[in-house]
Amino acid sequence: MTDEATAAPPGAVKKFMYINRRAPHGGNYAQEGLEVALIGAAFDQEVSLAFIDDGVFQLKTGQDTAAAGLKNFTAAFAALGDYEVKRIYVEAESLARRGLTADDLMPLMYEDEDDDYAEKPLIEIIGKDALADLIERQDVLLNF
């Protein structure tokens, strides 16, 4: 957790956190947030996503938008690992308030290049105090 160990050289990679607080299909925020996060990741920045409040519904398994006539943009969450996004934080309190557990969330994975490409879970469920601390330590915060 020390900044000295992880901080990038000045002017190089910045820590971007995309904060998502809206449910996936009731408006454009969620889809736009994901698109912007993918763009940030494509530019080799250190990207993490945080899901808070109704944002946790974005990661719910089994979303089928066909009958509603919507594009299921949430399929792209499974590509985040390919984009070298290494952390998706889900706030434990938001999850619990909605009666959800880790089992309700998409089993997103990434390959850890530093560990012989071992597949590792992308989602970390995190308490409010730890998340508040992480928010403090970002270079750029983007809200959706």
């Binding site: 993918l38 494509a42 594009k71 299921n72 943009f73 399929a75 792209a76 590509a79 390919d82 984009y83």
Partner: peptide
């Protein structure tokens, strides 16, 4: 078809 996005070039190359 799987992800509903067109991958960025770096991602495409790796995949």
């Amino acid at each position: 078809d799987e992800y509903q996005i067109a991958p960025a070039v770096r991602v495409l190359t790796k995949a």
